[in-house]
């Protein structure tokens, strides 16, 4: 019975389109909070809202929400890079493609400038950080610089 419940849970989550957050509605933040076993702290800024999720594993993920209720950016600071597939959702594709095409830059930061995604990954062992945002989802009068 317990196994059955687990299978159902996996099926349900697997089918949910809002498992990932970037570009999704604010409600999807709670799924990340659950995945990270973290605590969510919400603060307001001029023209947008921030969810800051802190996990017991030392990761801090910040999600930036527009007045329309959509996540337009995410950032992280953690001992290891968090699961970006879950954080970026469908926006992971240009990152995966760019990751395979890297050349000659060795050990340095990783930057992706795709048509509708700006992504940076930086730092070093025991101290990773990065961010991603969707330019077309940036709220009016909010600079992309806030996603950091």
């Amino acid at each position: 019975m317990k196994t059955m419940a687990r299978v159902l849970l996996i099926l349900t989550l697997g089918a949910a389109p809002a498992w990932a957050v970037l570009g999704e509605y604010e409600s999807s933040v709670s799924l990340d909070t659950k995945f990270m076993r973290g605590e969510d702290r919400v603060t307001s800024a001029q023209g947008y809202k921030l969810h800051q999720i802190t996990s017991p594993a030392g990761a801090v993920v910040t999600e930036y929400v527009s007045p329309e209720g959509k996540v337009f950016g995410v950032s992280w600071r953690a001992p290891v890079t968090p699961n970006l597939e879950k954080l970026l959702g469908s926006y992971i594709t240009p990152v995966q493609q760019a990751a395979q095409a890297q050349t000659r830059r060795r050990g340095g930061p990783f930057i992706v400038r795709a048509s509708d995604l700006i992504f940076v990954s930086g730092g070093h062992m025991r101290g990773f950080h990065g961010s991603a945002y969707v330019p077309s989802l940036l709220p009016k009068n909010v600079s992309a610089e806030v996603v950091r």
Binding site: G108, V120, E145, R148
Partner: peptide
Amino acid sequence: GGDSGNSLSTDYFDFG
């Protein structure tokens, strides 16, 4: 040298 970020808020210096 090359980029470390995408804007002032994500940039840093990596002395390689």
